[in-house]
Amino acid sequence: MNPSQILLLPGWQNSGPGHWQTEWERLHGYQRVQQHDWMRPLRGDWSARLEEVVADAPGEVVLAAHSLGCILTAWWAAHTRYAHKVRGALLVAPGDVERPDLAAQIPGWAPIARQVLPFPAVLVGSQDDPYCSFERAQTLAGAWGARFVDCGPRGHINADSDLGEWPEGHALLRALMNKD
């Protein structure tokens, strides 16, 4: 696949220096889906932007989502006309926007879409993610029909997790890229 067909979907506040998504963008040329407002995300706006980027893609795409990007993927998949263009999705550390503390910080994202995704997906969860319990991540994987991967105690699987280029995650992405 062409590197531009790998779409990086960061979460709330974007993915900064040291984040595996930023490393993959730098190393592999993957395309970050830019949102209009990283600090005050609006589900409708983010979903419309993803729809636009997938619609404009010349062929199939693979999604590599983190945190709120996972929640976006599920919501978008429930409403899009372009699910057929998605070869697969790597969903890393979904943020539980139905938790009262997160719902207050990121309003308008609940409820979380819980339909089986219309494309193959792998959900990577951490045993000590402060934004989504391990059990909740497993429940979301089941609802979405995603294969669940236990990442161990890695926090929110972000820059603070010191993953660097995160080769284990990239291997999961490459497996999705090569699905026939």
Rank of each mutant, 00 (worst) to 15 (best):
Q105G: 09
I106H: 08
Q105M: 15
R99F: 07
V86P: 00
A171Q: 15
N158V: 12
L123D: 13
R114S: 09
E60Q: 10
D150R: 07
E165N: 12
P118K: 09
G69I: 05
D101A: 15
A159T: 12
A78G: 08
K85D: 00
A121Q: 07
P41E: 01
N178W: 05
Q35F: 01
L42C: 02
A137M: 14
G142K: 10
G145E: 06
V53D: 03
S133Q: 09
G142Q: 14
L7P: 00
L140F: 15
W76M: 00
S15M: 09
P111W: 04
W38P: 01
R81S: 15
H19A: 04
L163E: 06
N178S: 12
A74Q: 04
D129C: 11
I106Y: 09
A65V: 04
N2G: 02
L42H: 03
S4A: 14
V61H: 05
P17K: 08
A110H: 04
G125N: 13
W166R: 11
L90E: 06
T22N: 12
I71H: 03
A65I: 05
A57S: 14
R114H: 08
W166T: 10
P94E: 09
A77Q: 05
Q138I: 13
L117D: 09
T80W: 08
P41W: 00
E135Y: 10
Q31Y: 02
G59H: 07
Q21N: 06
V61W: 09
S47D: 02
E52C: 11
L91D: 06
A55D: 14
R49G: 01
P111R: 08
V97H: 09
L172G: 08
N178F: 03
D162S: 10
T22P: 08
T80F: 05
Y82P: 03
Q34N: 03
W75G: 04
R174H: 13
D150V: 06
W12Y: 05
L50S: 00
W38E: 03
P118N: 08
Q105L: 15
L172P: 10
L90V: 01
Y30R: 07
L140W: 15
